[in-house]
Every structure is written in structure tokens, then in C-alpha cells.
Amino acid sequence: MRMAWLGRLALVAAAGGGVAAGYLGLVSGALPVDLGVGRRTRPLGPQTVDIEAPQDVVFEVIAQPYLGRTTRAMREKVRVLERGSDMVLAAHFTPLAGGRLTATTVETVRFTPHGRIDFRLGRVSEVDLEVG
């Protein structure tokens, strides 16, 4: 009787571990299975957004964490790795699973003053698990 109970417990633990590993693989990109669930697709090319504010103000607000001093609130979301005169290499952090996991995306961000900000994906790194 005891062996049957232990066998069932081992089966449940293995299944749970498989589900957790599958989830980590999907959210980190290590298991590239496209289920088409939970995300949207957009055509490649420039994305345009209309904002009712002066162009100079919009540019300054978006560029501030990258070209200027990063605010305390933005430090948890963006870390500038390298900074040039008109372009930065930045790591963007996205919390997952209620904040227990963090996906890191590395992108270049190029600034054309008063007109354009371009983001180019460099890589998506592994998901970091915070324990504590």
C-alpha cells in the first residue's frame, strides 16, 4: 500500500516538474513552440502612434531613461549597458509569473532628435528565477 502511494506521489511530482519546465521553456524562448495564445502579432515595419503632445516633449520623456539619468522607478525596468551619442544598448526587464521570474530583452535604441526613436531587438535572454 505504501509503495503505491509513493509511486503516485513520484508520478505527480514528475508531471508537475514537467509542467514547470515546459512553462519556463515557453516564456524564456528556450522551447520555441508557437501556440498563438496570449500574444498578438503585428506586421513587420514601423509602428506609428498618434500622441497629442508637442513632439519635443514626447521625445524628451521617452529618451530620458536612456540618454539622461535613469529614474529610480525605471531602474527596475531598464539598464543602459553602453551609451553613445545617439544610440544606447539597453537591457529591458519584464516581470513574469507574479514577479517571481524576469525575462531580459537586450535592444539597441537609436535617437533621431525631434523625430524618431528606433528599437532593434538584439536578443532575449534566459528567464531569471528570483528565490527568496
Rank of each mutant, 00 (worst) to 15 (best):
F119A: 11
R116F: 15
E52N: 14
R8I: 15
L26E: 02
R2V: 14
S28D: 02
G38R: 04
T94P: 02
R75S: 14
R123A: 11
V88P: 01
V106E: 08
L81K: 08
E126N: 10
R75D: 09
P113W: 08
P95Y: 04
R100N: 07
R120W: 03
F59N: 04
L67K: 01
T41D: 06
T70C: 15
S125E: 08
P46K: 12
V33D: 01
R120M: 15
V37C: 06
E76P: 02
P46S: 14
S28L: 13
R69F: 10
Q47K: 05
G16L: 14
P32A: 08
R116L: 15
G68Y: 06
D128G: 11
G38W: 10
V49R: 07
L129E: 01
R2T: 11
D56E: 10
P113N: 04
P113K: 08
G25Y: 01
I62H: 02
T105P: 04
G98K: 02
L129G: 03
I51F: 13
T105Q: 10
E82S: 14
F93E: 00
G18I: 14
Y23P: 04
V80H: 04
L6K: 12
R8F: 08
P46R: 09
Y66V: 05
L9D: 02
T70E: 02
V109I: 09
L31K: 00
A63I: 11
R39C: 15
G45Y: 05
R69T: 07
L89Q: 07
Y66T: 03
R120V: 13
E76T: 09
V58Q: 03
G68V: 06
V106A: 10
R75T: 07
V58P: 01
V58I: 13
M87Y: 12
G29T: 03
M1P: 04
F119M: 12
L9A: 13
L24E: 01
R39N: 08
L31G: 00
G16W: 01
E126H: 14
G98H: 00
D86S: 12
T94F: 14
G99Y: 02
K77P: 02
V109C: 05
T70A: 15
A91K: 03
E130L: 12
G22R: 07
L9R: 05
G7I: 13
L31Q: 00
F111L: 14
Y66F: 09
G45C: 09
E60M: 15
Q55C: 15
K77L: 14
A53G: 05
E107S: 13
M3C: 11
F111R: 02
Q64K: 15
L89M: 07
G36E: 03
D56M: 10
L31H: 00
P113T: 07
V109D: 01
V37Y: 04
G16Q: 07
V61Q: 03
V61I: 12
L96F: 11
E107W: 03
G122N: 07
M3Y: 06
A20D: 03
T41V: 09
E126A: 12
E130Q: 12
L35C: 05
V88Y: 06
L26T: 05
V49K: 07
S28C: 10
G84V: 09
Y23N: 07
E76I: 11
V19N: 05
T112L: 14
L35M: 04
I62Q: 03
R120E: 12
